[in-house]
Design a protein around this nucleic acid. Structure first.
Lengths: 251, 251
DNA sequence: AAGTGGTCTAGACCACCGC
DNA sequence: CGGTGGTCTAGACCACTTT
């Protein structure tokens, strides 16, 4: 009914010497203020000109920050009305994070076992999807992921050779995407197909489910900034223990 | 190896009298040039300052346009290198379109049968997900979608009353989202959970599959600009005939 | 009418990249 | 080094929403 409150952002501290862009500093400060509950859902922010003045920024710079937050679904902005903190309806951004990151984020302890790690010539279909020549040598990786002793995924990946070296042990400690990032490789765009089928006997054994249990399947090709192939992933999950969650924002 | 060509965008026609923002005009012009093949993947664009000059725009305005196209995965931009048209690896944006739209877009003819359309009090769990009071009256809709005679989805939806009226017949002609848009309701953010399970006898009958066949399941809550609940959808798809595709761009 | 975000301009300087 | 995109400024005017 009445005003839900006016947020004062004047005390955000910006570091003009930092290499981190100012608008990005604003994004992360406001983001964490919302996460910590200092900015409650429904709270109305001051208008853009006023916030910019308080922070000592130009309006375009501040707008860039707010635009990012709107994109993430954290803020809602309407002409003539103002900017308010979005309701809490989850705000998990749909991004190219790995399952590993997701699980760690909620405090669970996934364990990974590397089942396969070798160089293979690219099968025709996989070569086509990754846009490499058939027969090109690819790194084949197969991992089993468990959480509290229960298998939750069998992940098969094909990567162009040279992206990773003999890093099988590290794959037991870290996610594939984290390992790639550490080597300076940034997946940027990914095409995913999600479907379902029944577990074969071999899959059932690996995943500790009965034969014919429902599996969630995901097939993904990922490319970097320059459009170079990074990875093809074929993942299967026991549907009884796993689901994919995503938040979609319409622009 | 050598230059892949230099695109001249100077002949894009902009209408400064139009209510459509200039940057948006640039976005749609370039978008359709790429779709029509006038701008081939790999083609390098002139630098921002030059394009802006050619179009008679300021650089920030042009940058806004290019940023949108990069977001959509149509262009790739790298500091020091330039801007090029992205490789063709699909570019289906992951958005809140309906299955209906998707199928029509590829020229297929889906048919929809409305199985249920009535007002019901909100069950507790559904009320919580939609952030309405338990017992609030909701519109319950259940539809069966077929393509070339084969069922591909059973869609169950709950909407706050008042968003739609007695429009059951129209639901056989148009998608739910299209109908909502026509009434000025714009879903903006949606949380989706995708998983899988086996078909019950009743579901198997509806979907023309055997009992125990794998089903892809999707549960979605959607909210509008102002964070008001728009819809809760519970969809099931016969996995043997349907998969979900999405393109994810990391920002 | 008043207040808000939306669009647009014309510059400036910086950081990264390949040569 | 020269060229590119990345960031930032200080304004201006417009369109929409509510009072």
């Amino acid at each position: 009914m009445s005003d839900t409150g006016q947020a004062v952002l004047a005390d955000l501290i910006l570091d003009r010497e930092s290499p981190v862009p100012l608008y990005h500093q604003v994004v992360s400060r406001i983001e964490s203020a919302i996460e910590r509950g200092e900015l409650q859902p429904g709270v109305r922010l001051d208008n853009e000109v006023e916030i910019a003045r308080q922070l000592g920024l130009s309006r375009p710079t501040l707008r860039m920050a707010i635009a990012r937050l709107v994109d993430k679904g954290l803020l809602i902005r309407r002409r003539g009305l103002g900017t308010v903190v979005a309701p809490a309806h989850v705000r998990r951004p749909f991004a190219l994070t790995s399952l590993y990151d997701d699980l760690v984020a909620v405090g669970r302890r996934p364990v990974t076992r590397v089942l396969g790690f070798k160089s293979v010539p690219a099968p025709e279909e996989i070569a086509r999807e990754l846009t490499v020549q058939p027969g090109t040598r690819l790194l084949f990786i197969r991992r089993l992921r468990l959480i509290e002793g229960e298998p939750i995924a069998v992940m098969t990946n094909y990567l162009p050779e040279g992206l990773l070296r003999a890093e099988a042990p590290e794959l037991e400690e870290s996610g594939l995407y984290r390992l790639l990032r550490r080597r300076g490789i940034q997946p940027r765009i990914a095409n995913q197909t999600v479907s379902a089928r029944l577990a074969s006997a071999a899959e059932a054994r690996l995943l500790s489910v009965r034969r014919g249990a429902p599996l969630l399947t995901m097939r993904r090709t990922a490319f970097d900034d320059a459009g170079r192939p990074v990875e093809l992933g074929i993942h299967i999950y026991p549907a009884e223990r796993y689901s994919l969650e995503m938040t979609v924002v319409r622009h």
